[in-house]
Amino acid sequence: MPVDKTTVAKIARLARIYISDERQQVLATELNGILSWVDELNEVNTDNVEPLASVTGHSLPMREDVVTDGDRIDEVLANVPETTSGFFVVPKVVE
């Protein structure tokens, strides 16, 4: 069992999702099921095979260095849960 409850808690913390104690156990079981299934991939010899991250076969297009956007505070804040003086507002962060 590569994934135990502690691992689930750690992953949940990384993913910023609160997961209740009971569900951590359920998820551990599910994740183990999925991971042992994907372990099938180890049957495949991938020595000297380059990873394929993008199928398009072309290279990255680039934009010219021209200001074409911005100045749309109303749109940026159109759906905001909390705002003051044009800022987004979140609970205080202590560094």
Partner: peptide, 17 residues
């Protein structure tokens, strides 16, 4: 993005979607 990289604008002014 196409938003301006200039320093010193109003809050969230130089922001694109």
């Amino acid at each position: 993005s196409g938003a301006s990289a200039t320093f010193g604008a109003n809050p969230n002014q130089n922001v694109s979607l």
